[in-house]
Design a protein around this nucleic acid. Structure first.
Length: 365
DNA sequence: AAGTCGGGGAG
DNA sequence: CTCCCAGACTT
């Protein structure tokens, strides 16, 4: 019974982990002069996103919106712009709504249950925020913790997804949580997962809790946890590059759209009343091919140039909210999805290199 | 319970 | 290329 052994040696395990964490904790910006606001912002950004990716966004965000009041008072366009490229944009919208809810309260909630009522707060984030900021006895169960607990106990259960795995390890995580400094314990567990107990090639030789690990005895710690692989689906999308008078045509998703609400992307043919096939058959120039991935989709996007016809012009005039002409020198003022920001930048840079005169047309003295 | 969010980075 | 990641929300 590895699980029983681990719980029996709980105090010893906690001490070994805590001693390691004191010595090896990374210096991260949300750990310097920690505050509730920094903790909340970092936890939102870190949902499904690695520390390395978050770092520049976090710095920029704190600089622009230093506290709940500033965030609550900010227009949503500014919030989205600061989130541009980080992905999963509902996180930004939820964080914004959360800030407005928090400043409307006499004081921020202090329990996981109360935080769960706020937008964007699930079991993990509620436990992280309240244990770190208020010392609440709530155990975090994220991907790191699942991996560590599955290995400590050599649990060979086949989980269909990460949600069910988290649920399965919630009780053990709670049993291992010390009453003192639960926030540090939670962070130590995740730190161990991120810097030692890697998904592949775990650094067992430097693990502070190797002595408690049942998977080590099996000789194949990377076999745990057993998670069902997800199958990838390929998709193909055509995009339209329509430029006229130094302006680029972009499509803005509606505020209530399920995806990319209020964000801009290069329009799909359908949004312009065009047929994708006709566009390609028309012999229009293929400007670029890009790939993007999201969850189980691998999407290939072909960006075709299209001329501004009278019919297209009418269509654009009829949809002023979603089809917008953005001057090329003002593209920075709108928020694009990460991939489209990249591709638009690349296309413009390439053209500027091959035809320097075209890029400066109209703005030359 | 399953599907979706239209991501990004490192190996 | 592939795989993983400090999850939450909707249906």
């Amino acid at each position: 019974m590895p699980a029983r052994t681990l719980i029996d040696r709980r105090d010893e395990f906690q001490r070994a982990l805590a001693a390691w964490y004191r010595q090896h904790a990374r210096r991260l910006p949300w750990r310097e002069a920690p505050s509730l606001y920094k903790t909340v912002v970092s936890e939102f950004m870190l949902q499904q996103t690695q520390v390395r990716t978050v770092l520049p966004y976090f710095a920029r965000w704190l600089d622009a919106l230093p506290d709940f009041s500033a965030l609550a008072a900010a227009p949503e366009a500014r919030v989205l712009k600061l989130w541009e490229g980080l992905g999963y944009y509902s996180r930004a919208r939820n964080l914004h709504r959360l800030a407005r809810a928090v400043v409307a309260l006499p004081a921020p909630p202090r329990t996981p249950e109360a935080w769960r009522e706020l937008p964007g707060i699930g079991p993990y984030t509620a436990a992280a925020i309240t244990s770190i900021s208020f010392g609440a006895p709530a155990a975090c169960v994220d991907g790191n913790v699942v991996r560590i607990l599955a290995r400590l106990t050599a649990d060979s259960t086949g989980f269909r997804d990460s949600a069910s795995a988290s649920k399965a390890f919630a009780a053990l995580a709670a049993a291992l949580l010390p009453p003192k400094n639960p926030g540090d314990h939670n962070q130590a567990m995740m730190e161990l997962g991120a810097t030692v107990c890697f998904r592949q090639n775990p650094a067992c030789t430097v693990c502070p809790v190797l002595d408690f690990c049942a998977a080590r005895l099996t000789g194949a710690p990377e076999d745990f946890p057993k998670l069902a692989p997800k199958k990838i689906e390929q998709r193909a999308v055509t995009r339209v590059w329509c430029e006229h008078g130094g302006r680029l045509l972009l499509h803005r998703a509606a505020s209530h759209a399920r995806r990319l609400a209020d964000l801009h992307e290069l329009p799909e043919p359908a949004a312009l009343g065009l047929e994708a096939d006709a566009l390609a058959a028309d012999g229009s120039t293929l400007l670029a091919t890009g790939k993007r991935g999201i969850t189980r989709y691998q999407i290939t996007e072909k960006i075709h140039a299209a001329r501004l016809t009278p019919a297209l012009q009418r269509r654009i005039a009829a949809e002023p909210d979603s089809l917008r002409w953005i001057p090329l020198d003002q593209l920075d003022t709108v928020t694009l999805s990460g991939p489209h920001r990249r591709w638009v930048t690349e296309i413009l840079a390439k053209r500027k290199k091959t035809e320097p005169s075209a890029a400066s047309r109209g703005s030359a003295p």
